[in-house]
Amino acid sequence: MRITCPNCGERDRREFYYQGDALALTRPAPDAGPHAWDDYLHNRDNPAGDTRDLWFHEAGCGAWIVVSRNTVTHAIDDTHLAATVKR
């Protein structure tokens, strides 16, 4: 699996650290309550198919990247800098 970093181009998967589902881009408000925070921290859609997740270009430019990919085929559709992504 190779991931295209918007800054550095296509790189080996080993340069990246996997954070998890891209829902991390939409944190609940600090006072949203324990249920919202439990849901955000622990519960996942966990789709078999298209997903969006966050990867960190650890051994590269240090950017956080939103990767759209397929969990069944491992195909990667596109990648964007997390800094530019709005949900």
Binding site: N43, R44, N46
Partner: peptide, 18 residues
């Protein structure tokens, strides 16, 4: 391995990532 999909049929989201 498929808990998320089956639980979804019962309207649940689970603390599970495959």
């Amino acid at each position: 391995g498929r808990s998320g999909q089956v639980a979804q049929m019962a309207g649940m989201r689970l603390p599970i990532e495959s």
